[in-house]
Amino acid sequence: MIRVLLADDEVMIRAGVRAILSAADDIEIVAEAGDGHEAVELALSHRPDICLLDIRMPRLDGLDAARELRRVLPQAAVMMLTTFSEDEYIASALGSGAAGFVLKSGDPRELIAGVQAVAEGGAYLSPSVARRVITHLGTGQLGKQAGARARVEALTARERDVLALLGAGLSNAEIARRLHVVEGTVKAYVSQILARLDFRNRVQAAILAYEAGLVPDEGQ
């Protein structure tokens, strides 16, 4: 069972997200918070697998809450609830350790798929915002395509294979099946990749995979 903490200051949004996630047999909402400060406190009490945070909340916003959760409860993955108007926060959220982003207005199936993917050690971006996120980061934080390719060239061939599949949104188990290795081997490769690229999470590595051309652009 995937244990989820939900934090959003809008009661109606929380009710909607709760209803969607409760429809999945393998997901359980263990706590709900109305602001970031309460989210951190409840996370320490309930020890969820995933903290699903709204980006904009009173007292402590989702970005600061994510940073605090990274410090006090690093084993819990963080996902962000976002809207199109909040895309400018994505770069900051990546630096805060977020492993996924889902749109409040998106397909409910995306929310469930995202939680399941992150719980399996993967990363998730709602398809409708993935291109905007990649473009935004590609022109800023991660640099130009040439720079991305140069960074990827420092990896071994097998590490690049893993990075490409990671960039395509596959979980460790799915990558293991594709490469015909055990899941533990994939976990080791992912750790090596993050360390060599000096990244904090899989989302940052996935963005680099796109920038370097390891993952086909959907628009091509």
Rank of each mutant, 00 (worst) to 15 (best):
A33Y: 03
E110K: 00
G138V: 14
V203P: 00
E28V: 09
F84L: 10
I2Y: 02
R151V: 02
A39F: 07
G95W: 04
I207G: 01
E86C: 07
G213M: 13
L194P: 01
D198F: 07
Q141P: 03
A119N: 05
H37V: 05
G36T: 10
F101M: 07
E159M: 06
E38M: 00
A212Q: 11
L6D: 12
V118G: 05
G147T: 14
A205T: 11
E183K: 09
L52C: 12
A99G: 06
I193D: 10
L179W: 02
A33F: 06
R132N: 15
A205W: 08
A150N: 13
Q192A: 14
V162S: 00
A99W: 11
F84Q: 03
H180V: 08
Y89C: 07
S85N: 13
A43H: 02
V129A: 02
R202S: 07
S171W: 00
V215D: 03
V182I: 08
G106A: 10
I50T: 07
I207Y: 02
R18H: 11
R158G: 01
A7V: 13
L6P: 14
T83V: 14
Q145G: 04
R160M: 11
D107R: 08
V115F: 04
R132M: 15
I27N: 11
G16P: 08
V118R: 04
R196P: 01
H136E: 14
G97R: 11
D64I: 09
C51Q: 00
I112G: 09
V129I: 15
E28A: 06
E218L: 10
